[in-house]
């Protein structure tokens, strides 16, 4: 069995549906994260300095990739229809053309500048 000690997400307050005591109890009781940390430290494979160094490095790397990803365009519209199957079916080809024609006819309702061009 597993137990989630954190909130479900940044927008979740899990105290709405479970007691804080329940969460604290699970954090202490037989917590595999704590056990592994103690094991690693006992073996001399991990320590506080390594922990800080690792956390700093990984945080910087994630933020860098995050910023780079945010600058990218959204995927091309053709991606809406690919990967449903290994190849486009006749129906999907027809529907992709219908969407393309619709965007051409009503560009004021379908801005596409924030998407990459289809190849």
């Amino acid at each position: 069995m597993t137990y989630r000690v954190g909130h479900h997400s940044t927008s979740d307050d899990s105290s709405a549906y479970r007691s804080k005591k329940e969460v604290e109890d699970w954090k202490r009781k037989d917590n595999p994260l704590t056990r592994l940390r103690k094991y690693l430290e006992a073996r001399g494979w991990w320590n506080d300095a390594l922990e800080v160094e690792h956390k700093t490095a990984i945080r910087a790397a994630i933020l860098k990739e995050f910023a780079a990803a945010e600058k990218q365009k959204k995927p091309p519209l053709s991606d809406l229809f690919t990967d449903v199957y290994d190849q486009l079916t006749p129906a999907l080809r027809e529907q992709e053309k219908e969407l393309h024609d619709l965007i051409e006819r009503y560009p004021e309702y379908y801005p596409t500048d924030d998407h990459a061009k289809s190849s």
Binding site: H7, H8, S9, S11, D12, S14, A16, Y17
Partner: peptide
Amino acid sequence: ATSKLTPRMA
């Protein structure tokens, strides 16, 4: 709704 995410959604 997402402020009340639940075990199911988790």
